[in-house]
């Protein structure tokens, strides 16, 4: 199970929408061993491509050093698919090198609905996990709805107050 704050999820989705149709990527850092993602870092996609992403190597080193200094680790590693579903591709599986991370996939292929799913990827094996969103506020003007892979149907985000 991935538990994530609604404000952080909003920031990830906003990043994915902003970079569409190119793939967006980034991390959410959290204290080592806590399994709690608390600090969102939007990374540059050095490939600037609608079908591929790669963290810029210099930026990655800076961000990883910063996490070391703060006793953090990448709790979530996310990227977007802009024309396909939020499921790890063969590329994603083959290149997944952080066995402790939650790999979050965000699909922006539908303009009105954002599909969000989370996985563990270990030695080529993909295991999907539920996503639990906490601290969602009531927003009268919210029009964005999110769809979570393990939910039975689309979730109207503005109806999730009180979680």
């Amino acid at each position: 199970m991935l538990t994530i704050d609604a404000a952080i999820l909003d920031a990830i989705v906003a990043h994915a929408r902003r970079d569409h149709p190119d793939e967006a990527c980034g991390i959410v850092a959290g204290a080592i061993g806590s399994d709690q993602p608390t600090r969102h870092v939007a990374m540059d996609n050095a490939e600037r491509s609608p079908t591929f992403y790669r963290f810029d190597s210099g930026e990655q080193l800076r961000v990883w050093r910063e996490m070391d200094d703060l006793d953090e680790e990448p709790v979530v590693i996310y990227h977007s698919h802009t024309a396909t579903e939020a499921y790890p591709s063969r590329t994603d599986i083959g290149l997944a090198a952080y066995p402790d991370a939650h790999y979050m996939l965000v699909s922006t292929r539908e303009p009105e609905t954002t599909e969000i799913r989370s996985y563990r990827i270990l030695d080529g094996v993909v295991t999907e996990e539920p996503v639990r969103v906490v601290n969602a506020d009531v927003d009268q003007h919210a029009v964005q709805s999110y769809m979570f892979g393990q939910s039975p149907a689309a979730v109207d985000y503005e109806c999730r107050a009180g979680n």
Partner: peptide
């Protein structure tokens, strides 16, 4: 990659960091 790759020169006291790239994407091109 910018300083000679495997031929990069090392000196006493250097720090070497190994980080797996974070990469992937919708197409299988890797």
């Amino acid at each position: 990659r910018f300083i000679g790759s495997l031929d990069a020169k090392l000196n006493d006291g250097d720090n070497v960091t190994i980080l797996p790239a974070v990469a992937g994407g919708a197409l299988a091109t890797w």
